[in-house]
Design a protein around this nucleic acid. Structure first.
Length: 824
RNA sequence: GGGCGAGUGGUGGAAUGGUAUACACGAAGGACUUAAAAUCCUUUGGCUGAAAGGCCUUGAGGGUUCAAUUCCCUCCUCGCCCACCA
């Protein structure tokens, strides 16, 4: 009987119910047993699950089930990243409260996940919008505040006018808001920051420990942290006691500095131009820069706009007077907000100098093109070379000179060796309702006072007015804002901003270790048992933000003494996108395929198998309905084998004939290949193809009726195929396992099949013979045959002779059990 | 501009120095059927040839090697990330 649509529904519902009722996937700490923590990036509950979720979680589920069968104590939890703006937008649009909307979405997500048959320990389910969760957000925030890692600062911040909220640097993508894609502007505000830069060095250094992360994620994190080695150099302002400190990564070019450029926001700008003929021009330029949004200033045509301040600085190494300019390409946030310009050896300086007709001096000579002349240069020379026009350093290789000159300047007190970072502190204040309230109180007498731990959580009021306009909705809830100072008891005011939602997701993997603890953030012993996450799976879009923040939080929580690990995620797998007709599936493109519809027709098992078989997990996956049917047919083939050919209770022994041996060989080979595909980086596609090869052998294998000996071998091969497929198609595997009469345990708890290397060793092997690198013949020869045996066999072959006859054999190379290579 | 990755049949992909194209999809032909679906069998990289066979083929070109999809160099194309970061 084929596996019909009705069977699929019956079987999948039956086993989902069984798993849930028997709590097959409940995880408990078992100190003697090796643990394995599988985690997928938890979803934002925006509604039903989509194909991207299905792929992400199917990958994780196969790993969890495989590891379980391998005997690991597996933790595989699920939850919801449930705070965030869409809930507020829904509230505005539909008039439901964000909480109501979110919990409704969570119910839909949960139902969708259950239909896929994922092996979650549902007892550990969490949602970040539950007060029982965000209470510990607030607790962590206060700990950070106590350690000086959470602080308030007024400065120009990224502001998204459309979301009416601030954004972290990491949330500004090409000058646009990461969520709504509208242009981000600058605004001066007092906001809360987390001092992630406290861990800059550790966040960079510990990347070396992450050997099982994709190299591109490591590279992206490295670039984001952005450590630059160089020198700070002091330029005195002529005729004053002011000093301009510039940062450069090219101290070797200091003798070629012909002007200095300040960022428009640099504190000395006003002072320098005061009273000069340039004052009006400078003021106008600074104002223009201030009124231009950062994204516009940074993108645009990248013309190098600038203005002379009227003041001069002294190059400390040679006393040369150089003009001080202001340029919009210099950023106040990076380095010192001031640069020395060496137009001959830096392209941006070259463009600025050309535009504004500033002098140039060549200080590095190219061995291949000696005698560079500034007037003839069309672009800066930024390759290696030897120093010229550089006083006592002439003739020194420039890489060498970087060190020498820095040290010399340090001795002469002209500057110092220095390091600058790209990474900035993390702005986490959001003027939103649907987030964790920042647990701080402002008292006129005592200043900023954290909410005492006993008063946590600071709960979100249920009835804040959400309009999407103008500041935090919490500020409009009088009962929320007004409070007493915990220190002096006088009237005080609560912080009304909420935390960026990335805060919530930066530590949830720790909470899963002990999801319902109401006394502590988690139990130390439990976290010690489960952490780190052995395998983390999610999209590449989180390569920087989420992963960097999670690494930061883990280091902070480690420093609180709560966990021992330095890094939260041992292995990282970034799954590819799901495409249809060459484009990413998305609602706006109208090319989404609804998992529910696929499940209704073919079942969750088929959907799972298709997704795993069609491409390696890291690659893009092109949706292919024909491929889906192909996988459905394959499940049917094995189903039919169990249904019609499996002989329950067969028993019989005896020596094996050639066909028997072949089947046994295929069985062992399949176990080996699937196991190696799993261990060698979860190559699910080749794992599944190996089972297909085994089933091809099973279909060819003939069992005369009544031949118990052959029935036993056939049974074994079919059982092996079912077990090997169990992580991939768990519902059908359970059903087939019980159809085979094995009803004592869930297939999820059956041990993974083993293989015997010796069973894979045959008496003879097929080898190829090459003549001058081209295959000219194939031979069935005894295993481990050496040249003495092979030479006569191979040379006697007609096909080989055709190419060897009458020629001198120069070499006869034997690669045992693979091939011989003859050179004539 | 910098970084990372990829390029293999009609399609998804396999092979990490050793018989390129496993496995699957699709296609063609056949069996079964009144017919269709399902299922089963056969063929399926290109050129050439009646056949045996020969030649070519992993983006292009070069190199190392008895042997290269795999290692090295140069180039092209595509994807992703970062980017006026001094």
């Amino acid at each position: 009987m084929p596996y019909t649509t009705n069977d699929i529904r019956r079987v999948e519902e039956k086993w989902q119910k069984y798993w849930s009722e028997h709590k097959i996937f409940r995880a408990e700490e078992k100190p003697g047993k090796e643990k394995y923590y599988v985690l997928e990036m938890f979803p934002y509950p925006s509604g039903k699950i989509h194909m991207g979720h299905v792929r992400n979680y199917t990958i994780a589920d196969v790993i969890a089930r495989y590891k379980m069968m391998r005997g690991f104590n597996v933790l595989h939890p699920m939850g919801y990243d449930a705070f965030g703006q869409p809930a507020e937008n829904a509230a505005i649009k539909r008039g439901v409260s964000p909480g109501e909307w979110t919990y409704k979405c969570i119910d839909d997500m949960r139902a969708g996940l259950a239909k896929m048959g994922f092996s979650y320990d549902w007892d550990r389910e969490l949602a970040t919008c539950d007060a029982s969760y965000y209470k510990w957000n607030q607790w962590l925030f206060i700990k950070m505040f106590e350690k000086g890692l959470a602080y308030k600062k007024g400065s120009p911040v990224n502001w998204c006018p459309s979301c009416a909220t601030t954004l972290a640097n990491e949330e500004v993508i090409n000058g646009a808001c990461w969520r709504c894609k509208n242009e981000v502007t600058q605004k001066d505000l007092e906001q809360w920051y987390l001092k992630i830069t406290h861990y800059s060095e550790a966040l960079l250094e510990d990347l070396k420990k992450l050997n099982n992360w994709p190299s591109r994620v490591i590279a992206m994190q490295e670039n984001w942290i952005g450590k630059s080695y160089g020198a700070d150099i002091y330029f005195n302002v002529k005729g004053t006691s002011d000093v301009i400190t510039v940062f450069t990564t090219r101290p070797d070019t200091i003798f070629g500095a012909t002007y200095v450029t300040l960022a428009p926001e640099h504190p000395l700008v006003k002072k320098l131009s005061k009273g000069t003929a340039q004052e009006a021009a400078v003021t106008a330029f600074v104002e223009k820069a201030a009124n231009t949004s950062k994204s516009l200033r940074m993108s645009g045509d990248q013309r190098k706009d600038g203005v002379f301040t009227g003041a001069f600085a002294i190059n400390p190494v040679n006393g040369r007077e150089v003009p001080i300019w202001i340029g919009d390409y210099v950023l106040m946030e990076y380095g010192t907000g001031a640069i020395m310009a060496v137009p001959t050896h830096d392209q941006r300086d070259f463009e600025f100098a050309t535009e504004h007709k500033l002098p140039m001096i060549v200080v590095i000579s190219d061995a291949a093109r000696p005698g560079l002349i500034p007037e003839q240069m069309t672009k800066a020379y930024d390759d290696a070379g030897t120093l010229v026009n550089s006083s006592q350093f002439n003739g020194v290789a420039n890489e060498e000179a970087k060190k020498n000159i820095s040290l010399w300047m340090e001795e002469q007190k002209m500057g110092k060796v220095s390091v600058h970072w790209r990474l900035r502190d993390w702005l986490i204040s959001r003027q939103r309702y649907w987030g964790a309230p920042i647990p701080m109180i402002y008292c006129k007498v005592c200043g900023i006072v954290p909410v005492p731990e006993a008063q946590l959580p600071v709960e979100l009021p249920k009835d804040a007015p959400i309009t999407g306009e103008g500041g935090s909705p919490l500020a409009k809830v009088k009962e929320f804002v007004e409070c007493k100072c915990p220190k002096c008891g006088k009237d005080a005011r609560r912080e009304t901003d909420t935390m960026a939602t990335f805060f919530d997701s930066s530590w949830y993997f720790l909470r899963y270790c002990d999801a319902h603890n109401d006394k502590a953030i988690f139990d130390k012993a439990k976290a010690a048992y489960w952490m780190p996450v052995d395998q983390y799976i999610g999209g590449i879009e989180h390569a920087i933000l989420h992963l960097l923040y999670s690494r930061f939080f883990t280091k902070f929580i480690r420093d609180l003494g709560l966990v021992a690990v330095d890094e939260p995620f041992d292995r990282l797998l970034t799954q590819g996108m799901v495409l249809k007709d060459g484009e990413v599936m998305s609602k706006s493109k109208g090319n989404v395929v609804d998992p529910d519809e696929v499940i209704a027709k073919f079942g969750a098992d088929t959907l799972r198998m298709f997704i795993l078989f069609a491409a390696p997990p890291e690659d893009q996956l092109e949706w292919n309905p024909a491929g889906l049917e192909g996988n459905w047919r394959f499940i049917n083939r094995i189903w039919n084998a169990v249904d019609t050919r499996y002989v329950k209770g067969a028993a019989g022994q005896g020596s094996m004939d050639g066909e028997d041996k072949k089947l046994e060989l295929e069985r062992h080979a399949a176990v080996k290949k699937v196991t190696e595909s799993m261990e060698g980086g979860f190559k699910f596609n080749t794992a599944i193809s190996a089972v297909m090869v085994l089933m091809n052998a099973v279909d060819k294998y003939q069992v005369p009726s009544g031949d118990a000996r052959k029935a036993v071998l056939l049974n074994k091969a079919i059982e092996t195929a079912v077990l090997l497929l169990a992580p991939f198609i768990p519902h059908a595997a359970e059903e087939m396992w019980s159809m085979a009469g094995k009803t004592d345990t869930s297939v999820a708890h059956v041990a993974w099949p083993t293989y015997d290397e010796k069973a894979l060793v045959t008496d003879t092997v097929r080898i190829a013979a090459q003549v001058n690198g081209k295959v000219r013949g194939e031979f069935e020869v005894p295993r481990d045959a050496d040249e003495a045996i092979l030479r006569p066999i191979v040379l006697a072959d007609e096909g080989v002779q055709r190419h060897v006859a009458g020629k001198e054999i120069k070499k006869f190379i034997v690669i045992k059990n693979k091939l011989v290579s003859i050179v004539v």
